[in-house]
Nucleic acid binder design. Structure first.
Lengths: 226, 226
DNA sequence: TACTATACGGAACGATGGTTCCGTTTGTCA
DNA sequence: TGACAAACGGAACCATCGTTCCGTATAGTA
């Protein structure tokens, strides 16, 4: 469901003459805003009020909007910065000697990234922000890099041939976007291991027995302490 | 992240003298509200404005609130009605002759239910409503029924012994709550099949080959037509 | 130190959505 | 049919949140 965020021209605040001189205090503030936004969006995803970001950065809302024309622009900036290393990693993995292992490792890292930066997971579902061309491009790059990785892993016989990139995307999105209380870190690792088991040919349990056999995580049944 | 919904006393509107006489028009309206809410929450989950429910029911908002003290109460009423048959189904499955097959069937049905009634899937993640004791009780019943089903299926050697109810809950929540565009019906079925493969001992591909081998679903890369 | 372009803060605005309130309508019963 | 409790509708209220605006403060420069 769409929130009230409207789309507009994107990109870093106007940027007239891209290397225009920023006053020292302005540079400091911009850095603080980015830091605060990273901290908060990592935990709360896109659902973080601009006011809170401004407060943590010890800055007024106006200053945030002077640096980023909309909340979506700020969100996207952080998102792309997080996405780029993943694309590189996927490309490197596709060129690895053992694409099967590289694939499993990549999936694990991807899951960790999603968990460590919730906004990334939010971006994979309808989070209410209209993500624009830039985002969709880099995200397309990630998909195609992972596709190649998947193909190579399938070619060398480590991954089921009937598995598609759609399967991988959907399952990663699912695992990554689940309530972090139902899906605590160890639970998430178990699920990633199970998913990998379902994709791999042959060997079951990519996780060590000690971890896959650990005592079950407490099960949340719905209500939560407010 | 919590929306503006506050918690209060729950249960159907005051209900002073639980079988109190309802005027004919009131009964009609209540039925229409439930029908409208079911229709809308099935598609949009909890993120449906009360005004829209009232409008579809051809009733004023006041009438909605006379029947259900809060939006959460209305949500819960519908949720519980959906959950009860699932609990029964899980219990029946646990007593089936072949718990392994019964388990897989149950998981498939559960996934369908989640997909057909989005509010159910919303309930499995932090949807912003404080779900109270009643909800948490019935949901606990579901968990324990599925636990027994899982145990039986494990006892008869069809399901991996190291799989826990936490794994099953988390994976179902993940699959069910993913963006319905990334996770369209056929994609969802594929994922359920993969998950089942990862849980089962022996046989791979609980889906017929024709279905698991169908052409890959189009991959969504992020942005969406507004 | 004085001047000014740049940047700042945060009050105010507008949209959304849950909830309440109260004047009006209507089903029910005598 | 008349009277009244029950129920109705929807305007209004309040809180949240994205965004804008403008009077004020200050970094940089002469």
């Amino acid at each position: 469901m769409s929130t009230g965020i409207t789309e507009r021209e994107q990109g870093e605040a106007g940027s007239p003459g891209s290397d225009r001189h920023l006053r020292a205090d302005a540079q400091r503030n911009r850095a603080r805003i980015l830091e605060a936004a990273t901290t908060l969006m990592a935990v709360h995803g896109i659902d973080v009020p601009i006011d809170e970001i401004a407060q943590l950065a010890q800055v007024g809302v106006g200053t945030v909007y002077r640096n980023f024309p909309t909340k979506a622009a700020l969100f996207e900036g952080l998102l792309m910065a997080r996405l780029e290393p993943l694309v590189s990693a996927a490309r490197a993995a596709a060129d690895a000697d053992e694409p099967g292992e590289a694939f499993v490792d990549f999936v694990r890292n991807l899951s960790d990234e999603f968990a460590n930066f919730k906004a990334l997971a939010d971006a994979m579902v309808d989070s209410g922000v209209d993500l624009d061309a830039a985002k969709s491009q880099i995200s397309g790059e990630l998909i195609s890099a992972v596709s190649r990785l998947l193909e190579r892993a399938q070619e060398c016989g480590r991954i089921r041939p009937d598995v598609t990139i759609g399967d991988v995307s959907a399952m990663m999105a699912g695992i990554s976007h689940t309530d972090p209380i139902l899906m605590d870190p160890s639970q998430r690792k178990r699920c990633v291991a199970l998913v990998c088991d379902s994709l791999l040919i042959g060997a079951r349990s990519v996780l060590p027995r000690s971890e896959i056999l650990q005592s079950p995580a407490p099960v949340r049944t719905g209500s939560r302490p407010s």
